[in-house]
Design a protein around this nucleic acid. Sequence first.
DNA 1: TATGAATGAGAGTTCATTCAT
DNA 2: TATGAATGAACTCTCATTCAT
Lengths: 197, 197, 197, 197
Amino acid sequence: MGQRGRKKGASGEQSRGLLLSIATEEFALRGYHETKVSSIVEKAGVTQPTFYLYFENKDALFQELVHLFRSRLSDYTQKSLLEPGIAKTFIRQRITEGLTNFFRFFIEEPHLASIGFLVAPQAAEIKDQLTDQILANLIAEQQAGYFRKDMDMGIVADSLVGMMERFIATQKARTSKKPEVLADEVVRLFLYGIAEP
Amino acid sequence: MGQRGRKKGASGEQSRGLLLSIATEEFALRGYHETKVSSIVEKAGVTQPTFYLYFENKDALFQELVHLFRSRLSDYTQKSLLEPGIAKTFIRQRITEGLTNFFRFFIEEPHLASIGFLVAPQAAEIKDQLTDQILANLIAEQQAGYFRKDMDMGIVADSLVGMMERFIATQKARTSKKPEVLADEVVRLFLYGIAEP
Amino acid sequence: MGQRGRKKGASGEQSRGLLLSIATEEFALRGYHETKVSSIVEKAGVTQPTFYLYFENKDALFQELVHLFRSRLSDYTQKSLLEPGIAKTFIRQRITEGLTNFFRFFIEEPHLASIGFLVAPQAAEIKDQLTDQILANLIAEQQAGYFRKDMDMGIVADSLVGMMERFIATQKARTSKKPEVLADEVVRLFLYGIAEP
Amino acid sequence: MGQRGRKKGASGEQSRGLLLSIATEEFALRGYHETKVSSIVEKAGVTQPTFYLYFENKDALFQELVHLFRSRLSDYTQKSLLEPGIAKTFIRQRITEGLTNFFRFFIEEPHLASIGFLVAPQAAEIKDQLTDQILANLIAEQQAGYFRKDMDMGIVADSLVGMMERFIATQKARTSKKPEVLADEVVRLFLYGIAEP
DNA sequence: TATGAATGAGAGTTCATTCAT
DNA sequence: TATGAATGAACTCTCATTCAT
């Protein structure tokens, strides 16, 4: 979360950043209602009015975090899209790369990810949107002949996003593998399944 | 949700059931904090003290619903466990049956499922527990030679539970397939993957 | 407290008496506000509406108990008044008799005494009234030459009533002497003091 | 009770003190339950949340007052203890001094005294404790030969504390003598009694 | 840039009491 | 004589938010 030293008379941006980072952690760990403005400012070592110097209100701060998450997520989603006409040989590798990016993001910003995927009221919408984007990609690839035609890609997309959610929700507890390893295993699962060949 | 007619001087059990069913819906749709005791009783056509006639407090009612969900979920989990030594031919069928039960439950009780999987503070714990049970089963089967040994069953379990969560979260929006069809497709995905054979 | 067996379909007077005796105990031990109508009826094995069959409301019941105490107290006060022109030789004996009656009453009806002397809002008034009656008596006797003229009988009366209050408040805890012994010791104290002669 | 001017934006300590002093009066005059937070703050000219700025809750404020009373009372009790080996000539004077302190305290802080001796649920305990301390002192003196051996000092202690209670309960009504005069009269009563010599 | 002090608005909960049977 | 079911009227407490400095 970066350094969070508190200095008296610190510059405004510093106070703002401090509040933002503390709020991220609190919202992620306790949820929206359980996170009180009073406890955020207490941890930041400032008073309540100071909070309103930097944020319109509690909800505005929260939405700022959600927005931040969405834009980061959107970046990684863009990067993960498969360009049309990609060589069949590379497809597994490209998918793995895309997934790796997601995992890396979730590992680097676990609290933000938690907010966007779990605590935000829009979490459902965010995940739906991500699912739709993944789904569009999958269908395109399916029609391009990369994947079996007798598979419901909606289920695949749901499973992938659901798996991400579980990853975000449980990563504090589990000692995680490296993102690229993880991505590789996930891709193998979804490409080939677990049945004995 | 059953009949929810309101009668003056109705029997106690009726009032209790009415409050319970309204609360289930409210909690599922609005979340814990956004659901006010005042609005539950208003929809039930009774006054606030009546609420406290049947429930110790708001939280006790909520926990009762969570408990109800957990015990139903536990039932279906038991039923879905594969008995050891099952013939390899039947295994896919049995897995599909188990999954079908879960889907049926989620479809029949969408609000309760939403509470247990999404809105309860214990939701993470509930899903973790379910994941662990599924994982234990998968590992046993893997070691019995039904599944490939080079697959991380933890990822499989996470993906399955994540997929269930997505199903619960999105089923209001999506016009769903029948549970047995759904289960079959999911099983095919996880057994064989989406790669062209 | 008498026998408090509860019979189904008991006669009305029985229910009333039961409620009355339970209420006496509860009020004495817990105070007015801490004693809930709901707990009285629960201990009596009846329902709340039954309570209102016999008492106009909670306060009316309480006042009935206070009234009962006052009239009993009044009886003993009357009996303790010294008739004018009593022989000096008998005076100590008569005072002791009077006090003995009070102690006996407090021992026999500890809960009622507690209500009248400690928990009733009118407790102050009740004790004031008793003080005044005792004071009038003391002054009459003082003027009749039985007691020293240089003593403030107001202080004597206050000390006597205060001592009674302490007796009522503490008798559950202390293993008490017999009322006549107690009365004799109190009389000796107030007549002769504790100074070495 | 001090000055109770109300200023907008007054210093925090001022508001706290104001609330404290109003609460003392209210609790003393109306009792715990009859004293509403709403009426305390109304008299103080502030709103309800302000109350919770300075006190954890209604009960905490009340307990603070009880604690204050106990510690003051304890001070005066310490000061009133007779040092061992005191000359017989001085003993009456010392006892009178001690009692004077108590009376002065009760006169100066009538509401606080009322709370500690009458309205607090611990009032019984407080008086019991005071009684015990006085009793221990009396017994020591009795054994040192200052007082008659055939007197039950328990009764003396009860009567003294009972008398204090009556004093506190009635002083609003009675136009009181000066504390030293009062103390002197009480001491004379308990030392020599009211019987004609 | 910051704060000490205060508040509007509302939530959950309790309790004595009553209606209809 | 009794009750199952329900309620009016409070009351305590919390929290995000703001004013004056």
